[in-house]
Simulated assay, not measured.
Amino acid sequence: MLTVYNLKMPHAVYGGENAMDNITAILKNHQAKRVALFTDGGILASGLFTLPEAAVKAAEAEYYVLSDIPPEPSYTAVQQIVDQFKENGADMIIAVGGGSVLDAAKLASVLVTDEYGVKELLDTPGRAKKCVPTILIPTTAGTGAEVTPNAIVAVPEKELKIGIVNENMIADYVILDARMVKNLPRPIAAATGVDALAHAIECYTSKKANPFSDTFALEALDLILNHILPACDDPEAMEAKNRMQIAAFYAGIAITASGTTAVHALSYPLGGKYHIAHGVSNAILLAPVMRFNAPVCEDRLAKAYDRCCHEAENRCQSDSEKAEWVIGKIEEIVRHLNIPTSLKEFGVPKEDLDGLVEAGMLVQRLLVNNMREVTPEDARNLYLEIL
């Protein structure tokens, strides 16, 4: 656990009923005249975009829409969006979407300069400076991208995803409005929800865990374990969806104060090479990695059980029983949500094992956070378990 730690968060976060209405006042306070709205085709088709768009119109600000943002984009695809933004200009960015949209907007907010682009930030992310203020509005209850200083992009030549991390990308404003996740398709709600679950439990069992991150990670874990199933299964379960949206935000805060571990590290090659959705690749690896880590973080998993298990009967007594309950609960959730538990469904051959291990071991930025050291042989065994 860290003995020196800090917490960086957005300037303001608005949640609750009709949270979207705050956009109008924010734009007026900033005297914003021209607004760039980042989103994607799915959001436009769903009708969700009309809510933030109406708030922008109420502020009487000129605006334009950038919607050609693919899911899980490469750094070159993001650069194309950034170039469009630079060409059109704006004095405020509003992003409405999932992690890919929010990450693209965050990168655009620090890339108005011609001195460097997305590719250069892969190697030297610290050079980026905030140029345009941002309002981020998540449409999933999962990625936590609205609060983190991270932007994840695919790097095709390395068959890997890489996280660009710079605190200048932290949002100025965040809007958490449960109406934006009400009609989220179940597979997307499931994958992004388990992504948030991974954020919470990884940050809580990270070497970088600290009192700040523990506060948010444990609350997020409690909310997710006890609300993810109704939030995904019942379109009308608005209370559960609201809890999941808050939990995803809390888990994102935990990332900023702590950091994810081997689950995310080993999942990056699965997205980079096979284009498996980020939340799905994390879900496949989550229980195996947690069981691998259990011998060195059993006490933390036991504390998580004490916080999150609200069952009145059949209470676990020992730390090992409690840790196994937590891992078993994760497996139960993944199965119930019909998320694959192996790579067979994605046609990943065993012949690719060496490449997976090599790519996964490159993600030292996250592997160094893992409480139990992950050797190449360990990575090999974890990948074999899910092949």
Rank of each mutant, 00 (worst) to 15 (best):
I69G: 00
E146F: 05
T205W: 04
Q31C: 10
K322R: 10
M20R: 13
S267M: 08
P340H: 03
N183T: 15
E385W: 06
N293F: 06
Y305L: 04
K106V: 05
Y64D: 08
A141L: 07
D319Q: 09
D172K: 12
E120P: 08
Y116Q: 11
M371E: 13
K129A: 14
P376M: 09
E219Y: 00
I162K: 10
E159R: 06
E331L: 10
G144N: 00
L343W: 01
A104Q: 02
K182M: 11
I152D: 03
Q31R: 14
A198D: 03
G117Y: 01
T3V: 14
P349W: 00
G144Y: 02
T140D: 11
W325I: 04
G271D: 08
N166Q: 08
D214A: 07
L2Y: 05
L184F: 07
G271K: 01
G252R: 00
N150M: 10
V96E: 01
A178I: 12
L285K: 02
N18H: 13
N338T: 14
L7M: 15
V368I: 13
I333K: 00
K303R: 15
F212N: 03
L102R: 03
K344E: 15
I93E: 04
F49M: 14
V374L: 07
P149H: 12
A36T: 08
A190C: 10
D354K: 14
K130N: 00
P211T: 01
V78K: 02
G328C: 09
Q317I: 15
L384K: 11
R243V: 13
N226D: 12
Y116G: 09
C308V: 07
M92Y: 13
M92R: 04
A189M: 11
P230Q: 07
D234E: 13
